[in-house]
Design a protein around this nucleic acid. Structure first.
Lengths: 254, 254
DNA sequence: GTAAGCTATGACGTTACGTGAGGGTCAACA
DNA sequence: TGTTGACCCTCACGTAACGTCATAGCTTAC
């Protein structure tokens, strides 16, 4: 019994073009050809295709598959062994990447800038290190040294659930403040939320002195990454929040 | 402060060509150009490059990265969310593939053909199903119905350690028999190992009647996948084993 | 005999760069 | 001042694994 391209394609779940391609590169040559030039595949061809798809699915390149199928089991074993190590590494990296994505998501939602360290997890650290250092110093000037270090230390422990809790609280505070913007930054309800905000930072990130808190307020206006994010809740919220935080600091310094 | 291509490349750990490419496609356009046509990058360019590498590392295509960087945080979030799902699926598939590779390795070592089911874990089952059925029927004719089903059921429970134990035992038996080939298939020491072999099959795969055992011996000679594998231990072992198994069956049938 | 559905062979498109080729630029060193 | 050597530029083709037409012949059922 012989099969033509489309039949084989449907049987194996690949495209006709793929079979043409495999023929072109000599990976799967049909057993015979009809008088009119049609490719005719046999059961043996199907079996080989099966094998090809198997190794391909394991992530081997077509040339790799070709080699493997040409060589005895002994070489297959070596190929599979080294390949397995590759796969395991790949998975480890995937795990880190997924974690990073999750944190990035959380940080976007909460308007909290993720620690630089996390931003580069899974990257080629050696190559990137020099720039990283520079960036780090810049951050230190802007945000204050204590903050960066403390955040790095604390947040490294957090899991997804922690981030989600923090986000929920942050969002709640932003919303309440946004809803009372017309009452001005000194509004008691606003000031109450601002106090909660400072507490949240102290609890989850670093000890937030009034000096730092004031600087943080400035940051919300000066750094567009923050501004954009905060203003997503309500237009002008970042600027308003900054005023409210300054008012708060005035009242809480002895 | 401005940087030239090589500096940026070294800083970020990418190739000069990559920067050229990013320029070509408008993903990272240097802030200015020197009189002699040199690309001049600024700190801002570096920061953007950082972002590009970040999203690229998360598996986005360059056009995807471009979109993300052009749109506000809101879209970033959506993109990341759907992307995360992709990554999780990818990891799940990787897990299955790794498992399959491990089993394939074990089966190669032991010369034991892995259950078809495992061979196709992680594949596009629907597309492949029809052929699979055909293959399965063929197998049933050859190996006997009971055997296929029993193997499928039992081996599905095995972990890596189990396979390794089985392999170790198999190898030991093959080696001992191989070492006594010159004494002929009826040699008592050979027959002792053959008995162990039958016991191993009964213990780990299916109840191995003398009929099946004899058929299995034939299979070792008729199916080159087995022949090749067994002869790797010693040239002609497959054929010798078949004889020894037949002798054994003669003596153990009432 | 004709239309639907399949087949064939080009051949260019895609992604993210790698890898020269051929030829200017810049800074230091003799 | 000339000359290295390290760096820069712009083509432009190569890679992997096919996708996607375009153009044209084959098969088969009605």
């Amino acid at each position: 019994m012989e099969y033509r391209v489309k039949e084989v394609a449907d049987l194996a779940g690949v495209s006709v073009r793929t079979l043409h391609h495999y023929h072109e590169i000599g990976l799967l040559v049909p057993a015979s050809t009809s008088s009119s030039g049609y490719r005719l595949y046999t059961e043996d061809n199907l079996e080989r295709l099966q094998q090809i798809l198997f190794f391909k699915e394991l992530g081997f390149s077509l040339s790799g598959v070709k080699e493997i199928l040409e060589k005895p089991d002994f070489d297959r074993k070596a190929a599979l062994t080294t390949h397995k190590e590759l796969l395991v590494k790949k998975r480890a990296r995937l795990d880190e990447i997924i974690e990073t994505v999750e944190k990035t998501l959380s940080s976007i939602e909460g308007g909290i800038k993720m620690a630089d360290k996390d931003m580069f997890k899974g990257f080629d650290m050696e190559e990137i290190e020099r720039h990283q250092k520079k960036y780090s110093e810049e951050a230190k000037q802007k945000y204050g040294r204590k903050m960066v270090e403390a955040v790095e230390e604390k947040t490294s422990q957090y899991g997804i659930d922690d981030w989600e809790t923090i986000n929920a609280m942050t969002n709640s505070i932003y919303k309440k403040i946004g809803d009372r913007m017309e009452h001005g930054p000194a509004d008691p309800a606003v000031q109450e939320e601002v106090a909660k905000w400072r507490q949240l930072i102290t609890d989850h990130f670093y000890e937030c002195t009034t000096d730092i808190f004031r600087g943080l307020g400035d940051l919300y206006v000066m750094d567009e990454r923050f501004t954009k994010n905060i203003d997503r809740h309500k237009e002008g919220l970042a600027a308003f929040l900054r005023e409210a935080m300054h008012v708060y600091c005035e009242n809480h310094e002895k």
